[in-house]
Nucleic acid binder design. Structure first.
Length: 181
DNA sequence: AGATTGATTGTTTTT
DNA sequence: AAAAACAATCAATCT
């Protein structure tokens, strides 16, 4: 299960109802390798087909915040290994943050989303080859897709204006990714 | 050994 | 429009 889908989102009073076993990670529930029982992708219908390089959904502000939160959380709680612990702690703190505090995260998430749309555009272009919907398993010569790294063409004329009451420190986003291995 | 779960919220996606 | 699924993460647990 996606864990907190209907419960977490709908009910918010599970903290007391469902105490987490401290750092206990996986209790005991694994229906591994079960086509229909697998919730991973119960292909009831052709919801999603396995695509080579399909851009995953952009992380929401919460996830962006979580990524940073996890680092600190683990730093202060090296004993806790479960992801659920951080999830709950993060969710709790997330709500504790003010809109102004979430602003920077939202900004980052917004940027991620923008990239996602761009990637999706390129992705669609590749898919343009054969718009086969349905159970067309016929894999024609899929060959390599020319990956065109679309670099941000032109900056946006205007920098994001924070018209919010709280002026957030605009961190200069570094887009130069130095990937030295 | 690989697949899966657990948990959070927000957005993307699908119906 | 609304519900569903999925986005990351890490270790434990299951088949």
């Amino acid at each position: 299960m996606r864990a907190a889908k209907g419960k977490g989102a709908a009910k918010i009073s599970k903290e007391a109802l469902k105490p987490v076993d401290d750092g206990r990670v996986g209790k005991r529930k694994a229906a591994a390798a079960d086509d229909k029982t697998s919730k991973r992708k119960a292909r009831k219908e052709k919801r999603a087909k396995k695509d080579p390089n399909k851009p995953k959904r952009p992380p929401s502000a919460f996830f962006v915040f979580l990524e940073e939160f996890r680092k600190e959380f683990k730093k202060e709680n090296p004993n806790v290994k479960g992801v659920a612990a951080v999830g709950k702690a993060g969710g709790d703190k997330w709500k504790s943050l003010s809109d102004a505090e979430k602003a920077p995260y939202e900004a980052k998430a917004a940027k991620r989303k923008a990239e996602y749309e761009k990637q999706m555009k390129a992705y669609n272009k590749k898919q343009e080859s054969g718009a086969d919907d349905g159970d067309e398993e016929s894999e024609r010569s899929r060959s390599e897709v020319n990956d065109e790294e679309d670099e941000a063409s032109g900056e946006e004329g205007q920098p994001p204006e924070e018209e919010e009451e709280e002026e957030v420190e605009d961190e200069e986003e570094e887009e130069d990714d130095e990937d030295d291995d």
